[in-house]
Amino acid sequence: MKKVFERPKSLRQAEFTYCPGCIHSIIHRMVAETMDELDITNRTIGVCPVGCAVFMYEYMNCDMIEAAHGRAPAVATGVKRVLPDKFVWAYQGDGDLASIGTAEIIHAAARGEKISVVFINNTTYGMTGGQMAPTTLVGQRGSTCPAGRDPEHTGYPIRVSEMLATLDAPSYIARVTPTSPAGLVKTKKAIKRAFENQLAGKAFSMVEVLSNCPTHWRMTPIESFKWIDENMTPVFPLGVFVDR
């Protein structure tokens, strides 16, 4: 019998502890598949964040570093600078990358660090209990904005991809979402492109993945996918912002 589907070699024999329907699981698998396809697992150092993906080092079958909250781009910089021949990726959520770690991501991008970043934007702090994030939409509820985000009080969501696209150094910046079969294909392609760029010696790449949080959004997974398409993509338009 022909095997048509199996666990990527870059994933360990460990069960994901994510909530049912969470997009993290999909993106973890894509990162692992991409490492398999590019045959880089044995030369990869992955850097994982603080947030729901904090245990990523238990899932990925490559060398891993667990970074302090928001510091993954700085940690990845330290690794890549001393081991320029190795493959280095960082994986961060929106609280990690767009709030506490804004300086780190902007300057890693501005320096053109030869790293690949996967940015999971689900407009919420999942692990800590659904608090307001820097990417929370206006009017969206969270445990620290129970009446909905009020721009008079806490401003507006940050569009990280557009912001980093103003810099000269990055080689690839794209925003994708895997809420449809076509979106899944595009997401995988974007991650592969970001990884290939690093292998080609190109500067900083980042893929922003619009993601869900069915638990804190209080939706079924299917509803949450629909919510991304209807509410998030108008604020965070999909597309390729930098490709050079």
Partner: peptide
């Protein structure tokens, strides 16, 4: 390697990354 970081916070985390190797 010598690199000027964007902050002391980043500098020590770059040390964390480099020392990890």
């Amino acid at each position: 390697v010598c690199l000027q970081a964007e902050s002391e916070v980043s500098a020590i985390n770059m040390v964390y990354g480099a020392a990890s190797t």
